[in-house]
Simulated assay, not measured.
Amino acid sequence: MLSLIGAIQDLLFPPVCVVCGQRLAHSQPPLFCDHCLGELAFINSPLCPCCGLAYNGGDDHLCGACLRQQYSFDRARSLLVYTPAVAPLILRLKFSGQLSALSSLGALTARSPSLDDLSEPDWIIPVPLYRKRLRQRGYNQATLIAQACFPQWRHKIRHNLLTRPQPTRPQTQLTGRARRTNLAHAFALVKEKDITGRDILLVDDVLTTGSTVNECAKTLRRGGARRIEIYTVARSWPEARRALLKEEPAPSDHEDRRGEPGALIGAADYQVR
């Protein structure tokens, strides 16, 4: 009976690829055509055990940024590299209210080895939006991502523990150093007693320099959080930014390490696993 209902639904509402719109033969997420699925760059080991930066060879080891500075979070993991194949999904979700990709991102997350590195949290906290931006958008994309990617922990999602009382400039307009200054004291705790001694999983859409999630983690640490891990759908890196912007981008926190062993991996080097 369910298969019959599904067949009728596919007939009335033909499933399409969430990236290019090509007609698909099935409606089971993830909804990607073969070409677009092949263009996705999944993040796997070897990588930095702290921030999750991927390498093109060797073993897992701390990257230069994590050796130079101590982040306020314990671990960060991302599903995909933020390439031109992924950008439309994130941008449509954030700015156009197109939520159709959420189930596909959830299906990919369930298959991702990055989940194996994450501890089961006490609370899942989506990175909050400033209240005016939340009203304008009508939803927080980080909350929707958390619901789609962690259905088994949906009862742990809390959007009323961490707030963003101060408006800030969009991070995409700023360099790495300006990003950190822009976010200083941007976040605040609502119920500190609910944070003390807890293991937290912070969820956001894209990790670029890590400034946003690190500032959130600082606030949570001040509230006594025991362990803080990060999960994002995508991870930006310099070469992918050049492909997206088609110009030389401002330097990021990781861009000065091309000569190191285990240099940043390129999209062409990734294999879908």
Rank of each mutant, 00 (worst) to 15 (best):
L53C: 08
H185V: 07
R241L: 14
S119H: 13
L144T: 01
G224C: 13
G97I: 06
A101P: 01
L201H: 07
L91R: 01
E247D: 11
S45V: 09
C51Q: 05
L264F: 02
F95Y: 15
L102K: 05
G97K: 13
L118A: 15
E248F: 04
Y231M: 15
H185G: 13
A65Y: 03
L162R: 02
P29N: 09
Q98A: 12
L264N: 01
A25N: 08
L89D: 01
I157W: 09
A142R: 00
I195Q: 03
I5W: 09
A87K: 02
K218P: 01
F13V: 11
I145N: 00
A240G: 08
Y130K: 04
T83K: 05
L144K: 03
D10C: 10
A65S: 13
Y130V: 01
Q70V: 10
I200D: 01
P126A: 03
C36M: 14
D256R: 07
T196D: 14
V203S: 04
A267Q: 11
L264Y: 02
L53R: 07
G57E: 14
I145L: 14
I230G: 10
S103R: 11
G21W: 09
C63S: 06
L174T: 04
C36P: 07
N182R: 04
K191A: 15
A76G: 10
G106V: 05
D116E: 15
I43W: 00
R77H: 04
F73C: 07
R77E: 01
C48F: 02
E260L: 12
R133T: 00
R135E: 10
M1C: 10
L91M: 04
A65P: 02
G223E: 02
Q147Y: 09
L12Q: 10
D205A: 00
G38H: 11
Q141C: 05
Q9G: 06
C216S: 12
T175C: 10
P14R: 09
F95N: 14
W153R: 07
H155C: 10
P170G: 15
G57T: 09
L99W: 12
L189H: 06
L108V: 13
P49D: 12
L264D: 06
R179H: 10
L189G: 08
L24K: 09
I5A: 09
I265G: 01
L207N: 03
Q70Y: 02
T219V: 15
P151K: 06
Q28M: 10
S119C: 14
A240Q: 05
R75G: 07
N56V: 05
W153N: 05
A76P: 04
H185R: 15
E260F: 08
Q147T: 08
Q28F: 06
Y55T: 05
A146E: 00
A217I: 08
V190R: 14
F73N: 06
E120R: 13
A142D: 00
D59R: 12
G262H: 08
V19A: 11
H159R: 00
Y231Q: 06
D199F: 10
E215S: 15
R241I: 08
L31V: 04
L53M: 11
D122V: 14
G64Q: 13
K246V: 06
A107P: 09
N140G: 02
I145Y: 01
N182D: 12
P165H: 03
R169P: 09
E247Y: 04
A186Y: 03
N56F: 11
E255M: 07
T168K: 07
T196Y: 04
H185Y: 13
Q9M: 07
E239P: 02
T181N: 15
W153Q: 05
L108W: 09
D205R: 01
S100C: 11
V16Q: 11
